[in-house]
Design a protein around this nucleic acid. Structure first.
Lengths: 152, 152
DNA sequence: TAGTATTCCTATCGAATTACTAGGGAACTG
DNA sequence: CAGTTCCCTAGTAATTCGATAGGAATACTA
């Protein structure tokens, strides 16, 4: 269960924009330097965010990128979907489109349950939450369990 | 957030073995046909499960694969880890090994919370649960919500 | 108003990983 | 020994990650 580089970079760039304020604009190169992201790769990702309507861009000497909506109205899940496709997929297809046969039939509701649990977190947490380092209590209590940090 | 073909195939093969009974053995070709998995690809996956100690194999005319432990002692998470590496990874590395800087710092506890929520499901559900089509109540109640089946 | 610097935007290329295929060698059964 | 089955190595197509080069649009300056 893997979160791609695209998704991680997209979220970090969006958080950086959120931290700069809803009306400030940042240059791609500045975001890349602040977060250690390959800057030409980041430009492609920012293009996806623009086509997805999450950011607006401006060319020229005083150009850059800024959020298209307030940071507390953009969920992490929104950013991932625009930059990287479906939030959770099995073999590249969304869980409801899967078909299992024989004794594996119960895998379908299992993946649905996993997706629901992921959505519950990534659909609730917004860019504003992360940028202000104030995650919702429900999420914090999950992350505070020491067992959640052990490796396997 | 993507579940690879390896992981999906590995779980389906293990479930098929669980459904056959703890002491019965199945041939790779039979599992491949039952689940529609490319059989040479499946052989590589079964090799990983064997090296990981989850199944035992036998060559020759009456050979095949069978589970190395009772089906109710093998969690779905165990199968995925052996066949496909860490249960959840960001850019190929496990969440505790990530390092974020600046306003993105709260992403680390966020991924930890996501992983904890995924573990809670895949670490609790066993091959026996899936093979018998009797998922734990906690999981079923997540999957029964009609909203969990809608697409974005 | 012309020129220049800055920035976004597109297209292409190589390395690495994923998904899958092919063929032959090793071990077990009857 | 002969037939079956697992087991190992190598090789191919597609995707992802990341780098590079140049073109198009905008803003500042003289």
């Amino acid at each position: 269960m893997r979160i791609s580089a695209r998704a991680d970079y997209a979220v970090r760039a969006a958080v950086e924009l959120a931290a700069a304020g809803d009306e400030a604009s940042l240059k791609a190169e500045a975001i890349a330097a602040a977060q250690g992201i390959p800057h030409k790769f980041l430009e492609g990702i920012l293009g996806d965010l623009r086509r997805g309507g999450l950011v607006v861009s401006q060319r020229g000497g005083k150009g850059g990128y800024r959020l298209a909506r307030p940071a507390d109205s953009i969920a992490i899940a929104d950013v991932i979907r625009v930059a990287d496709g479906p939030l959770v997929s099995v073999r590249g297809v969304r869980p409801p489109e899967l078909s299992y046969c024989g004794p594996a039939e119960s895998l379908l509701p299992l993946w649905i349950a996993v997706r629901a649990n992921v959505r519950k977190i990534l659909g609730e947490v917004t860019l504003a939450h992360v940028a202000a380092a104030k995650l919702p209590d429900e999420v914090l209590s999950l992350a505070e369990d020491p067992e959640a940090w052990t490796n396997p």
